[in-house]
């Protein structure tokens, strides 16, 4: 596919420097909701300024440019190995250009590879789809917020959580309490109910590909998503944990089937620097649409 590397480089640049409109709108709205003169409003105003400044300067929004997560949907004939090669080259070049920080460390030796390449980096998740279009999405997820992700195994006696929707609600709100002050709130939760430990976490991250304003097609989950945001915002934790009205900007929940013996709830926390972008390529390899 022609120009794939150049297109991916631009995708990385945009993702690192510019938040998608749906996220910017929600942040702006919650900045207005904080009390005049409060610590919370002070924090939100700086966040809003930072978003504008990063875009203007075409520089990373946050110095932690995070884990590099690609999600690809492509027709059967699509060459995944060629994609992987182009993605790796684009990531190395983006690092050299400063769109990404040198952020990938060998877990045994502690040595930074210097170009963000190494086992597991970048991570690429591919699926086939019918038709001829190729959808490429990218999330950059920082370490501070990744560190506060959590996986619960229900029942959980500590928080009185049984294997039902109320139990799910209890562990999600517990996670919000635990993450306060960490992970640069206000945040967005991606949640998966069910699955095994690995698929559950992955599916929780996939929830972060949804837009802030979409509505879950499952009415039970749609109601739970709404309830979590309203309830979390009553906790008063606020931006940066300073106290205030906005603790969560959104919550997106998916479900996978589980084994009768297991009941996992996996929570991926995303900081306000919610960097996701994507594009659609036609069969000539041209970008025909930006997805967010």
């Amino acid at each position: 596919m022609r120009n794939l590397k150049a297109n991916l480089l631009e995708l990385v640049r945009r993702t690192s420097a510019e938040l998608p409109d749906d996220v910017v709108n929600v942040i702006a709205r919650s900045a207005r909701q904080e009390q005049e003169g409060s610590n919370a409003q002070y924090a939100m105003n700086i966040i809003v300024n930072n978003i504008d400044l990063a875009k203007l300067k075409s520089q990373p929004l946050c110095q932690d440019t995070g884990s590099i997560l690609f999600f690809v949907k492509a027709p059967r004939a699509f060459d995944q190995l060629a994609f992987e090669k182009a993605a790796r080259e684009a990531v190395a070049e983006a690092t050299a250009k400063g769109y990404l920080r040198q952020n990938s460390v060998d877990s045994i030796t502690g040595k930074n590879t210097g170009n963000n390449l190494g086992p597991g980096s970048p991570s690429i998740h591919s699926h086939q789809q019918r038709g001829s279009r190729v959808d490429v999405r990218l999330i950059l997820k920082g370490g501070g917020c990744e560190n506060v992700g959590a996986q619960y195994s229900l029942p959980d006696v500590r928080v009185n959580a049984n294997r039902d929707v109320d139990g799910v609600r209890r562990v999600i709100l517990d996670a919000v309490i635990q993450t306060q002050g960490k992970g640069c709130g206000p945040g967005i939760l991606g949640v998966c109910i069910g699955g095994d430990r690995a698929t559950s976490y992955l599916h929780s991250k996939e929830q972060l590909l949804r837009t802030m304003d979409d509505v879950n097609p499952d009415p039970t989950l749609a109601a739970l998503e709404k309830d979590i945001v309203v309830s979390a915002n009553k906790l008063g934790i606020g931006p940066m944990g300073f106290g205030g009205a906005t603790t969560l900007l959104g919550c997106k929940i998916g479900a996978l089937n589980r084994l009768p013996a297991s009941y996992f709830v996996s929570i991926s926390y995303m900081c306000w620097a919610y960097r996701r972008q994507g594009f659609v390529l036609n069969d000539g390899g041209k970008i025909v649409e930006w997805l967010y």
């Binding site: 610590n39 002070y42 924090a43 709100l173 306060q180 009553k234 906790l235 008063g236 944990g241 300073f242």
Partner: peptide
């Protein structure tokens, strides 16, 4: 920046944590 811990023994982090735990009791 915001002063979240002062030199008189006050911590906003401790205060918000306590208050949010109280709130949670009303919500579950």
């Amino acid at each position: 920046a915001v002063v979240t811990m002062d030199s008189h023994g006050n911590s906003l982090h401790a205060a918000v944590l306590e208050q949010s735990r109280e709130q949670l009791k009303q919500l579950v």
